[in-house]
Design a protein around this nucleic acid. Structure first.
Length: 616
DNA sequence: TTAGGGTTAG
C-alpha cells in the first residue's frame, strides 16, 4: 500500500502508520517496518507525532533493535509517559534489565518525570529478573503512596518479584490482601510456593483455586506440576496430568516438559517416556528434561543414549543439556569419554559457561584425572562459588584434604566468591576423607560462627563421619544430641559405620534403634549391624537382624565396577547373575563420538584432528 | 503481569 502511494492524497496518515507499525512489530517484520520509518522521515507533516513515536519504539524493541528505539526516543523534545514507558518495557523485554532500571531512574530522578502504573510494571519485572529486592521494595512503597494498589497487572508483577527473590511471606501477604485476583495472580502464588520448595502449600493453593471455580491455564498447570516434582507426589501429579489432558493443555511443549520432569522426579521414567513419545514437537528443553531425569535417577547409560538420539535427530544441545550429560558421564568415570566431551564442548563454545566449567571440573575429578580438572579450573576467567566448590571437592575425592584447605583459603582471601553450604560440605567431606579431624571441626565452627550459615543434616552427617572414622564415638554422639534439627537416617548411618569400624556394639545398637524408629529401608544399615554381631559370634542376634531384613523385604544392591585400561572398558561384577554391561556402554560411547564428530563437521567444516581433546 | 530442563556434596 505504501509503495504504491502516489500523490499526497494517497499518503498514509498517522493513524494508518501506527496500525501498520504495530502489525510489523507483532509479526517481527523488520524490513517492512524500516520502510514505514523511511516514509515517516520523508513526510514532515506527520514526522514527530507521539502516537507514531511510541509505535516506532515498540516496533524496534519487538525486533530486538533497542539502539534504533533509543534513536527514535531522542528525536522527541517533549516525550510523554507512554513514549518513555515504551522504552523501559522495551529494555525489559529484550533482557536489558540494568538498562531498563537506569533509563527509569534517569527520567524519574534526574528529570522529575512522574511514572504511570504501566511504567512501573516493566520496572518491577526488571527488578524481579535482576533479583533486586531492595529496589523492588522501594518501588512497592511508591506504588502504595501513589494509590496504584488496585492495579492488577502491577500487583501481579510485585507478587512475581517476591516469588523470584524468595520472599515468600511478603508474597503471601500481598496475595491475601488482593481485592481482585486473576489467573495470573493465582499462578504466580502457586509458582512462588513451588520455586521456593513449599510444595504442599503450592498444591493446597492449586486445589483451592479449582474449588473456587477459577479456571487454570497452562502456566498454572506447569507450576502445580513443579510442586508435585518437588514433593515427589506421583498421585497428585497424575491427577494434574488428567486435568491438563482434559483441558487440552498437554499440547503445549512447556506442559509436556513439566510432565516429563514431574514423572522423572517421581521415579516413574516409563511414564515420562510415554509423555515424551506423544509430543508432536520436541525442542532442546524437552530432550534435556528426559536426559536430566535419567541422569538424576543414576541411569547414566540411558541418559547417554538419549543424548545420542537427541544429536542424531538434529537437535543442537545447549548448556543445560551439556551439564547433564557431563553429570551422567562422571558417573561412568571413563576418562576417554570425558576428554571427548570436552573437545565437543570447546568446539561448540560452551566452555565459558560457568555451569559447564564446574561440571567439567567434577567430571575430570571423578574420572581420576585431577590435573585436567585443575587445568579447567585455572583456565576459567570468572570463578564463581560453584567452580571453587567443585575444585575443593575434587581435591577431597582424591584424598588431598590439605589442598582443599589451601584452595579454600585462597578463595576466601583472593576472590569475590563467598563460600556457601555446599562449599562447606565439600570442605568437611575433604577433611573426612583425609582424616583431618581438628581442621574439619574448625571448618564446621567457621561455617556457623563466621559465615552465619545453618548446617543441614548432611553437614552433621559428615561431621559424625569425620569423628567416627577416628574412633571419637562419644564426641560424635554429643554432636548428634546437640543437633537443633531432626536427625535424619544417614546421620545414624554414619555413626553405625563408625561403630562397625571401631567395634562399639553399645553405640551401634543405639544407632540401629534410632534407624528402626525412623523406619528406613536402607538394607546396608542392617547388614552393618548383623556383621557386627557376627564378629562377636552373637549368631542369635545375626539371625534376628537377617529375619528383619527379610520381613521388610529389603535387598542389598550388588555392586559393579568398571576399569578403563588403555581406552578399553572392563567390568567386574560381584555376582555371576549380573551380566557385564560394559560392552554395550562402550558401543554406545563409540556411536556418540561418531555423531558428535559428524555434527561438528557439518557445523564448522571437516576436522582433521581427532575429537578427543588434548590438554597441554 | 505468570511458564518447561541446569552447577558444587554424598
Amino acid at each position: 500500500m505504501i509503495s504504491d502511494a502516489k500523490g499526497e492524497d494517497n499518503q498514509p496518515d498517522n493513524y494508518t502508520l501506527t496500525i501498520a507499525l504495530k502489525a510489523c512489530a507483532g509479526l517481527q517484520l523488520l524490513k517492512q517496518g524500516e520502510i514505514l520509518h523511511g516514509v515517516l522521515r520523508k513526510n514532515e507533516k506527520i514526522g514527530l507525532d507521539l502516537f507514531v513515536g511510541s509505535a516506532l519504539i515498540e516496533f524496534y524493541s519487538k525486533c530486538g533493535k533497542m539502539r534504533d528505539a533509543s534513536k527514535v526516543f531522542k528525536e522527541f523534545e517533549k516525550p510523554d509517559v507512554v513514549l518513555w514507558t515504551s522504552m523501559v518495557s522495551g529494555y525489559e523485554q529484550n533482557g536489558c534489565f540494568e538498562e531498563a532500571v537506569a533509563f527509569f531512574s534517569e527520567r524519574v530522578v534526574e528529570k522529575g518525570v512522574d511514572p504511570g502504573h504501566v511504567t512501573l510494571v516493566s520496572l518491577v519485572s526488571a527488578c524481579a529478573k535482576l533479583s533486586n529486592l531492595k529496589l523492588g521494595r522501594s518501588v512497592h512503597g511508591f506504588v502504595i503512596r501513589r494509590g496504584f494498589e488496585n492495579e492488577l497487572c502491577l500487583v501481579n508483577a510485585l507478587l512475581n518479584l517476591y516469588a523470584k527473590t524468595g520472599f515468600v511471606k511478603a508474597a503471601e501477604i500481598l496475595f491475601r490482601r488482593m481485592a481482585g485476583k486473576d489467573v495470573v495472580s493465582w499462578s504466580s502464588m502457586i509458582g512462588c510456593y513451588s520455586h521456593n520448595g513449599h510444595a504442599v502449600e503450592a498444591l493446597r493453593l492449586f486445589n483451592d483455586m479449582i474449588n473456587k471455580g477459577v479456571q487454570p491455564n497452562a502456566v498454572t498447570v506447569v507450576s502445580a506440576l513443579q510442586a508435585c516434582a518437588v514433593a515427589c507426589d506421583l498421585g497428585e501429579g497424575q491427577r494434574i496430568h488428567e486435568l491438563a489432558t482434559k483441558e487440552g493443555f498437554d499440547v503445549e511443549v512447556s506442559v509436556s516438559t513439566a510432565l516429563i520432569d514431574m514423572y522423572m522426579k517421581c521415579l516413574s521414567p516409563n511414564e515420562a517416556v510415554n509423555v515424551f513419545k506423544k509430543m508432536p514437537r520436541k525442542d532442546v528443553v524437552s530432550w534435556a528434561a528426559l536426559l536430566s531425569g535419567y541422569s538424576q535417577a543414576g541411569m547414566a547409560y540411558k541418559s547417554i543414549g538419549v543424548f545420542r538420539d537427541m544429536l542424531s535427530s538434529g537437535i543442537q544441545p545447549d548448556a543445560v543439556s551439556m551439564v547433564k550429560i557431563l553429570a551422567s558421564s562422571s558417573e561412568l568415570g571413563i576418562l576417554r569419554q570425558a576428554v571427548c566431551l570436552h573437545g565437543y564442548i570447546s568446539r561448540s563454545g560452551f566452555d565459558s559457561n560457568a555451569f559447564v566449567e564446574a561440571s567439567l571440573v567434577e567430571l575430570y575429578s571423578k574420572c581420576g584425572n585431577l590435573d585436567y580438572a585443575v587445568k579447567v579450573f585455572e583456565g576459567s576467567i570468572d570463578k564463581d562459588v560453584v567452580l571453587w566448590s567443585a575444585m575443593i571437592a575434587g581435591y577431597g575425592i582424591h584424598g588431598q584434604g590439605g589442598e582443599s584447605l589451601k584452595l579454600f583459603e585462597q578463595m576466601v582471601k583472593s576472590s569475590a566468591a563467598r563460600p556457601n553450604n555446599v562449599t562447606f560440605l565439600s570442605m568437611l567431606s575433604a577433611c573426612s576423607h583425609a582424616g583431618l579431624v581438628s581442621q574439619g571441626i574448625e571448618i564446621f565452627h567457621m561455617m556457623v560462627n563466621e559465615y552465619g550459615l545453618n548446617p543441614s543434616s548432611e553437614h552433621y552427617g559428615i561431621v559424625v563421619d569425620l569423628l567416627g572414622r577416628t574412633g571419637e564415638l562419644d564426641k560424635a554422639m554429643e554432636i548428634i544430641n546437640q543437633m537443633p534439627i531432626p536427625v535424619e537416617p544417614h546421620v545414624w548411618g554414619a555413626l553405625l559405620s563408625a561403630c562397625r569400624i571401631h567395634h562399639n556394639l553399645e553405640i551401634g545398637e543405639l544407632a540401629t534403634k534410632n534407624l528402626l524408629h525412623l523406619d528406613t529401608n536402607h538394607a546396608g544399615y542392617y547388614i552393618l549391624l548383623s556383621n557386627m554381631y557376627a564378629v562377636d559370634g552373637k549368631w542369635g542376634n545375626v539371625e534376628k537382624v537377617r529375619t528383619l531384613i527379610k520381613e521388610k523385604g529389603l535387598k542389598k544392591m550388588f555392586g559393579q565396577s568398571m576399569v578403563e585400561i588403555s581406552n578399553e572398558v572392563h567390568s567386574f561384577v560381584a555376582d555371576d547373575k549380573f551380566h557385564p554391561e560394559c560392552e554395550k556402554i562402550y558401543e554406545l560411547l563409540r556411536q556418540l563420538e561418531v555423531i558428535m564428530r559428524l555434527q561438528l563437521e557439518q557445523l564448522y567444516g571437516i576436522f582433521e584432528a581427532p575429537l578427543s581433546f588434548k590438554i597441554t
